[in-house]
């Protein structure tokens, strides 16, 4: 690959999209910096969660509240959506027409929505078992960490819809391209945060 094609991490669009790359390279770097700042927020919430593990105050703990099956399904959904977003990125990079791109994006969006729906169902089940944040510090810590990830997914979905709208109005111009690149970074990044969540919160809790 040429040097200009690899100017920032994440997907590089390459020389065929020089207009988008040259003018808006700073945006992608800036977005990475923002992601890292966000990463610190998640990191601190993870540390807080571990610190609060003992604060169950006699209420339900991980074994009573978590279900492995639905977490597994959520994990698979999110992983698949990361892959489909990758396919969308490739369509953006190598195809001139918007159709495959839009199809992959819509598949990704549906997976994102499915993830949120599953997660909400999960929270509902937890509430049914007495797992409400007002019950104990431990459950509070859970609900300050995991739903924040869900909110990020929701924001990413809204952003995706907005970008689909921009494609409809403006076509694939450089604004949309850099928008998609940044959204891709966010999407893959959220999957990484989810790895930490299912490993530390769910699997760690169910051990």
């Amino acid at each position: 690959m040429t040097r200009t094609a690899m100017r920032h991490p994440g997907l590089n669009l390459g020389p065929a999209h020089a207009d988008a790359e040259d003018t808006r390279e700073e945006m992608i770097f800036g977005f990475w910096v923002f992601m890292m700042s966000d990463f610190v927020i998640f990191g601190l919430l993870f540390a807080t969660y571990v610190v609060m593990l003992g604060g169950t105050a006699g209420g339900p703990g991980p074994h009573e509240l978590f279900e492995m099956k639905s977490v597994f399904i959520e994990t698979l959904i999110l992983l698949t959506s990361s892959f489909t977003f990758g396919m969308a990125s490739l369509a953006l990079k190598y195809r001139e027409d918007t159709k495959p791109l839009v199809i992959w994006l819509i598949v990704t969006l549906l997976l994102g929505v499915a993830f949120i729906a599953y997660e909400l169902k999960d929270f509902h089940t937890m509430f049914g078992k007495g797992g409400v944040p007002s019950r104990s510090g431990f459950i509070s810590a859970f609900f300050s960490l995991v739903p924040l990830h869900g909110l990020h997914v929701l924001a990413a979905c809204i952003w995706l819809i907005a970008l689909l709208g921009q494609i409809a109005v403006h076509g694939l111009d450089s604004f949309v391209k850099t928008g998609l690149l940044r959204l891709a970074i966010l999407w893959h990044f959220l999957d990484i945060v989810w790895i930490c969540i299912f490993s530390l919160v769910y699997l760690g809790g169910l051990t």
Binding site: M1, G14, A16, D19, L90, K93, Y94, R95, E96, D97, T98, H170, G171, L172, D173, S174
Partner: peptide
């Protein structure tokens, strides 16, 4: 940027085709 997107598939150079794969 315009909507010049009527052609179905951009002509990929050999190098690009390899990259895509």
């Amino acid at each position: 940027m315009s909507r010049r997107a009527l052609s179905k598939k951009r002509e990929l150079s050999d190098e690009e085709a390899k990259e895509l794969v």
